[in-house]
């Protein structure tokens, strides 16, 4: 369980990223922080593994304040997946995945075996294990990034817009893969994105953030869609644009779902 208690962050240059943020991320759940740029979502994510130090409040992992922990040890115990995967360009794929294991002092042979195993879990072809990251496609790199985050079998997985830089088809593929992994591995996951579709697809709970880390609404995707807290949320999730207010129309004997403007959105089965 991860708990944010009145967390605030003001950067050295005076910019306030977040103020008085409270949230409980239950164990084994996926919570998605979603907001546009400047909403402080990445700041919040990074304060969990002390990449950013909050200026106010506390963050607790299983009731232990992260500020009391050694930051390097803490980061090794938490999986982290970032945009563009952030792989080390001078290490082969499998060595990239073995990085955290090696840092934790696991012998090379065992680290490589485990890395191959977890690369298999994320569905990367074994012929790519000895390639360098630059020889992979964006989607493949991102799978390696996820594998690296999982290599150490951490309880917590932090994901910072991990699928933001790949094309829509690959993104959908990776999201499906992510859902499967979540079912199998049940990591406590905090996922940051600016894409509300992605948030609804992956999140057990979705936190919609306004500028400055102010929470607009917290809830399941169903709750947010059915009962948006205010106009900001309504507009953010697309209720205002009419893409989400769907109705059924009969056309040539077929029942089609159309949006507010009558554009076909799908068929009813």
């Amino acid at each position: 369980m991860i708990e944010f208690r009145s967390v605030g962050k003001q950067f050295d240059d005076g910019t306030r990223a977040v103020s008085d943020f409270n949230l409980v991320v239950p164990s084994h759940a996926t919570v998605v922080l979603v907001g546009s740029s400047g909403s402080g979502k990445t700041t919040l994510l990074r304060s969990i593994n002390r990449m950013v130090e909050p200026t106010e409040g506390q963050i607790l992992i299983d009731d232990v304040d992260v500020a009391t922990q050694n930051p390097v040890e803490l980061r090794r115990s938490i999986g982290y997946v970032m945009q563009h995967a952030g792989l080390l360009p001078h290490r082969k794929v499998i060595d990239n995945v073995a990085t955290v294991l090696r840092l934790c002092g696991i012998p090379k042979k065992r680290a490589l075996d485990r890395s191959a195993e977890v690369l298999g879990t994320v569905g990367l072809d074994s012929s790519l294990y000895t390639k360098y990251p630059s020889q992979l496609s964006g989607g493949q790199r991102q799978r390696v990034g996820v594998a690296r985050g999982l290599a150490n079998d951490p309880n917590i997985l932090l994901m910072d817009e991990p699928f933001g830089a790949v094309d829509p088809i690959v993104r959908a593929e990776l999201q499906t893969e992510m859902l499967r992994l979540q079912r199998e591995l049940e990591k406590t996951t905090v996922f940051v994105t600016h894409d509300i579709e992605e948030a609804f697809a992956l999140g057990d709970q979705v936190v919609i953030l306004k500028k400055g880390g102010e929470v607009a609404q917290i809830g399941t995707p169903q709750e947010i869609l059915a009962d948006p807290a205010d106009d900001f949320v309504r507009s953010f999730v697309g209720l205002e644009r009419g893409q989400r207010t769907l109705r059924i129309e009969e056309k040539d004997g077929q029942r089609i779902v159309v949006d507010e403007y009558g554009r076909p959105a799908g068929v009813l089965q």
């Binding site: 970032m82 952030g86 080390l88 990085t99 840092l103």
Partner: peptide
């Protein structure tokens, strides 16, 4: 050296 790579190394737990 790309800052992103350094960032990611820190996140992995490099001292």
């Amino acid at each position: 050296v790309p800052p992103m790579v350094l960032d990611s190394a820190t996140a992995c737990g490099y001292s």
